[in-house]
Structure formats: C-alpha cells, structure tokens
Simulated scan of single mutants.
Amino acid sequence: MSIAETMIPPQAPPPAPPRPYTLARFFGSVALGAWLAFGVGIFLTIVDGWDPEKFSRYGPSFLSGLGVTLLLVISSIPMGAVLSFPVALGRMSKNRFWSWIAYIYVYFFRGTPLIAQLFLVYYGLGSFRPQLESIGLWWFFRDAWNCALFTFTLNTAAYQAEILRGAIESVPRGQHEGAAALGLPERIAFFKVILPQAMIVALRPYGNEIILMIKGSAIVAIVTVFDLMGETRRAFSRTFDFQMYVWAAVLYLLIVEFLRNIWAWIEARLTRHLKR
C-alpha cells in the first residue's frame, strides 16, 4: 500500500448530478406513455374479441398470404440487385449517354409512387395485348403475379442502384490509388478492393430497402394478388371484423422485427474486424 493510499483512503466517486426535467423529456415521456397505452389497448382488444372459430377458419389463409408476400420480396430483391449493378455503373459512367439513361431510369422509379408503377404495368400493358401477343409476351403480362414481380424488380433496382453507387463513391480515393500502386488491374481492384468495402457501407441501407419492400408489397392486393393484405381484405369482407387487419399488422411487425434482428447480426458479423 502506498503512502498516498494510507493518507487518503479510496473513496467512491461523487454521485452524478440529477438531470433536469426539461420540456423535451416531458414530451418524450408523454409520447412513450401514449405508445404504451396504444399497445396495451390493441392487446386487450385482441384478447377481448378473440374468436377461435375465425382464427381456425382464416388462419391458414393468412399464412398462405404471408408466404406469397415473402415469395414476392425474396424473388424481386435478388433480381433487382442484379439489375441495379449495371444501372449503378451507368450512373457513375463518364459516357453521357449511359449516364443519362441510368439517371432517367432511377429518376422515374424513385420519383413516382410504386402503386402508379404497378398500375402502369398491370393495366397499361394490357392495352397493348395484340402487340404483346405478336412477340410472345402476353402470357407473362396477363398474370397479376408476374406484373407485380416485374414492377417490384424494376422499382427496387432503382433504389439499390443508388445505394450501391453511394457506397462505391464513399470508398476513400486512397484505396483506388493503393490498388493502382500495387499494379492491380482496374477490374480486379474494383471487385477485390473497392466493392467489398462498399458492400459493408451499403449493408444497412439494403436492409432498410428490404423492409420497405415488405411493407410496400401490400399494394399488390389491389391487382388481385392474394398476398397477406389480399387475404386480410378477403377475410374482412366476409366477417367485417377489423381484427383481421390487426392480425395482419402483427404479422407484418413480426416479419420486420425478425428481419431487423437478422440483419443486425449479419452486420455485426461482417464488421467485427472494425470494432476494437
């Protein structure tokens, strides 16, 4: 024991000063209380109006619609990712022609509502049935599911292209110069040095895009695709019980929460070397 410890015994640190109860904390507490009351109210409503007969009758339909929703998102996201790569390269191209083509594509699909795009494909292309039949594409566009998949793929490709472009441009210029100093060909430097770093930056925006696609997929019910929302609308039209929409909201919430946790785990796993 040192002389200093003998003369001055160890003492606990002083308590932290109390935080002032500001107006922001007051409104935050009110908002939190309102959300808690809303959640409790929804829970009590479900418990009070629980009908086992309706659940056993429409539960399988909800699960079937949930499968359609997941299939639509799982199919459109990878195809959109493939399409987004050349679009992102076109946006970064020094060739004005390809740059403008990519810009117009991204500008249109990001600047117009998804439901308008779906109507343009489903109802608009139906006006060109003779032309589509002549080139052998009517079999594809006559089906509502195919139109929804086609529209969602084009839409998410535009958003993913901007995510990818921003991520690539966020990689420091020194990485490009370092790869060139090592004598790496430009293509190898892009795929081995630049793109892996860009994908880490783009990981969280990609997760947000998937979540938005899951929630946006509800609009396909309008064009007779019986996804989760389509089955919900059909069940409500037969029962006039608003709890059908509560069940759908809970299922959407569970999907998003599950995906959020999975994506957080993936991000933590891939970026563990960046944490000290």
Rank of each mutant, 00 (worst) to 15 (best):
T22H: 06
A181M: 12
S76I: 05
S237Q: 11
I210Y: 03
P205A: 05
A16D: 11
I135Y: 01
Q243C: 00
F191S: 15
A37D: 02
L63P: 01
D143F: 07
R276Y: 15
S2K: 10
A180G: 00
R165Y: 07
F236M: 02
L212Y: 08
G39N: 12
L149R: 05
G111V: 07
N95C: 09
N95K: 11
V68N: 01
A181Q: 07
K215Y: 06
I8F: 15
I168R: 03
S134G: 00
L259I: 12
P113G: 10
E5K: 14
S127R: 14
Y252R: 05
V47H: 02
L203I: 06
T22L: 09
P20I: 09
E53F: 08
L203E: 01
F152Q: 07
G67P: 03
A189F: 04
P20F: 06
I214K: 01
G183Y: 11
V47A: 14
R233E: 12
G207I: 04
G216T: 04
H273N: 13
I222R: 06
I77L: 11
I255P: 00
Q197H: 08
N146Q: 12
N261R: 13
V201F: 10
G39T: 09
A31P: 01
R272N: 11
R173N: 11
K215R: 09
Y252M: 06
G90Q: 04
I200N: 09
P60M: 05
Y105Q: 03
E267A: 02
R173C: 01
G49D: 08
L164A: 04
W98Q: 04
F119Y: 15
S127Q: 15
G230M: 06
I8R: 13
I255C: 09
A264P: 00
F119K: 06
M199H: 00
D143A: 12
A181R: 08
F26R: 13
T239I: 02
A181D: 08
L164K: 03
L203P: 00
A102S: 15
I194W: 07
P185A: 10
R204K: 13
L149E: 01
A248M: 08
P17C: 00
Y122D: 11
V47L: 13
V256S: 10
M244N: 10
F38P: 00
W139D: 15
P172M: 05
A116W: 12
R233H: 13
